[in-house]
């Protein structure tokens, strides 16, 4: 599958590109500099466009799916007015529609262990509402806070957000995104994931 990755520059991004390559997907992404583009290619990106000389419509042509990692700082969360550039998400979605890319896996900046109020602060959830309105085949993922620890390959999917959830390795978050891509059971669903005891593939079905 040819997958366009938005937000590959963050912590989840490197693991995601690596896993996409391992699963024989072709990852396409955008980098802010030539040096960063080299790095993303070393990690596993098949094609990297430079932000300065590309338009969304151009780079999305021919892609089968989009993985969108919405950026927040790792310490974002409760009571932080995290600014999500939802306009960027909206623009990307418009371009995707134009290029007839129907599949969208979205890692929300709103964390599992945030209160509903905090999740809605600063428009963090606006893109999710838009996604549902449009005719995308979406999967929205809310995860607990990511950490640079080796992935365990095990998660739990919980019904709604909870007060406190343990940290989840970025590697596992990336795996959930990749495994969701062609998994029909995740279509048009919002999944809340935390570290757990069920192997990722099984948890998603």
């Amino acid at each position: 599958m040819k997958v366009f990755v938005f937000g590959s520059g963050g912590d989840v991004g490197e693991y995601l590109l690596k896993k996409l390559a391992q699963k024989n997907h072709q990852a396409v992404t955008i980098a802010e500099s030539a040096n960063r583009a080299d790095e993303l290619k070393m990690v596993g990106a098949a094609e990297v466009y430079l932000a300065a000389d590309t338009s969304y419509t151009e780079v999305l042509a021919g892609c089968d799916a989009i993985i969108y990692i919405a950026g927040t700082s790792p310490h974002a969360g409760e009571d932080n007015n995290v600014l999500v550039d939802h306009e960027a998400v909206t623009r990307a979605m418009a371009a995707a529609k134009q290029q007839q890319v129907a599949r969208l896996v979205y890692l929300s900046p709103a964390r599992v262990d945030e209160s509903a109020i905090s999740q809605n602060t600063a428009g963090k959830k606006i893109p999710e509402e838009l996604m549902k309105l449009d005719e995308f085949t979406y999967t929205i993922i809310h995860a607990s806070r990511g950490v640079h620890k080796p992935g365990k390959g095990m998660i739990d999917i919980i019904a709604s957000n909870r007060k406190k959830a343990a940290d989840l390795p970025f590697e596992d978050i990336a795996e959930v995104l990749v495994e969701s891509l062609a998994n029909k059971a995740t279509y048009n669903k919002t999944l809340n994931i935390t570290p757990g005891i069920i192997p990722i593939k099984k948890a998603l079905t």
Partner: peptide, 13 residues
């Protein structure tokens, strides 16, 4: 930092 020629493509456990 983004201009440095580092290879961090394989993280170390």
């Amino acid at each position: 930092r983004t201009e440095l020629r580092i290879d961090n493509s394989h993280k170390v456990a």
